[in-house]
């Protein structure tokens, strides 16, 4: 009996050398421990072993069983290793470029617009949008701009034909459609549907009938802000723009308010900043925005109580700010979309 076990074990150890695949392993297993396997026969024969020999033979049987199980395990691991080596192939070259495309990116103007919006969101502004095709009323009349104001001239503003019909852009009366020259029109539409207090910024595309050059573009982008509440003052306006400019251009940025004229604000200011932060520009004053206290006539147009409420508005050009922030010296780069330009802003 014990000899038999010994020979089974030796036979198994010999036979294991020929096992290379899972199928061979299965057959090998069946030969030994299957229903008719060599070892199974031995187990079946245990009944015939004399009682006094049973413990000894039993131990020997267990020993051989364990050894053979270990052999199976070893064979299986060997096969798995071979299999995965075959699946993996040779070691790769980590320096090869990935064939997948580079990461995409938002356009620099979109990034700057978003950065500006975020700065204002932090102090309670929300972002609103409005149509690019506007009417004379929302773009000019409601903004206290007289009908003979030069900005309304055919030389400066794009108009649509008298009979143009825009299904989803409302008119006040029978005024003409035009391409908005600023996003202040969004503020008018917003105030008409929202009672004060109001705190919004409206970014968007604007149009002026300019010949394109390094600083002028057939269309450009603005962001305008509006704050209406009780007792809003020049001091509040300055505080907000100081905050904005420091957030955008660094803590050392300084601002200067220059009195100016806009029909829809009074008093009106142009805002300059200076920041040692920006190379080259040094201590020069650079114009960055226009602003002012909302003219009471604008409140009349949208039905706000001019005695009870006051407010301020401000506006700035996104291209201009992007040019300052990124050192871009020609506005046309933004609209050319050369991949080498766009990629520089992937971050």
């Amino acid at each position: 009996m014990e000899d038999k076990l010994q020979s089974i074990l030796e036979g198994a150890q010999q036979g294991a050398k020929d096992v290379a695949t899972r199928a061979e392993l299965e057959a090998f297993k069946a030969r030994l421990v299957g229903p008719k396997g060599e070892l199974t026969q031995v187990v079946k024969g245990m009944g015939a072993v004399p009682k006094e020999d049973k413990p000894r033979v039993g131990r020997a049987l267990n020993e051989v069983k364990k050894t053979i199980e270990a052999l199976f395990q070893e064979l299986l691991e060997g096969i798995e290793e071979k299999e995965s080596a075959a699946r993996l192939g040779p070691p790769l070259d980590p320096s090869l470029p990935s064939p997948d495309g580079v990461r995409g990116s938002l356009h620099p103007l979109a990034q700057v617009r978003e950065e500006i919006c975020s700065i204002f969101r932090k102090v309670g502004f929300s972002v609103v949008e409005g149509p690019e095709v506007e009417t004379e009323y929302y773009c000019f009349d409601a903004l206290n701009t007289p009908s003979d104001h030069p900005a309304r001239d055919l030389q400066d503003t794009y108009y649509l034909p008298e009979n143009a019909r825009f299904g989803n852009i409302s008119k006040k009366e029978d005024e003409r459609y035009l391409l908005r020259t600023h996003t202040s029109s969004v503020q008018i539409r917003h105030m008409l549907k929202t009672p004060p207090p109001v705190r919004v910024v409206s970014p968007g595309r604007c149009f002026r009938r300019d010949t394109a050059d390094a600083t002028h573009s057939a269309n450009f982008h603005q962001i305008e802000g509006l704050y209406v509440d009780e007792d809003v003052s020049v001091k509040d306006l300055k505080a907000l723009l100081d905050y904005f400019i420091r957030s955008l251009l660094g803590k050392d940025a300084r601002t200067r308010f220059r009195p100016h004229f806009f029909p829809y604000t009074e008093p009106s200011f142009e805002v300059d900043f200076s920041s040692s932060h920006l190379r080259k520009l040094g201590s020069e004053w650079i114009e960055i925005a226009g602003c002012g206290i909302v003219h009471p006539s604008v409140f009349d147009a949208v039905g706000y109580d001019r005695e009870k409420y006051s407010g301020f508005a401000f506006g700035m050009g996104i291209e201009r700010i992007a040019m300052i922030l990124h050192g871009v010296d020609d506005i046309r780069y933004f609209y050319q979309n050369d991949f080498r330009f766009l990629q520089q802003f992937a971050r």
Binding site: D100, G104, S105, L106, H107, A218, N337, F339
Partner: peptide
């Protein structure tokens, strides 16, 4: 509208697209 625009742009940028700005005319 603003929220949608932002999500759409971020999604496409994540799909290897580069955003462009073209003239409206």
């Amino acid at each position: 509208q603003v929220v949608f625009n932002r999500k759409a742009a971020e999604y496409l940028a994540g799909q290897h697209f580069f955003e462009t700005f073209n003239y409206s005319l």
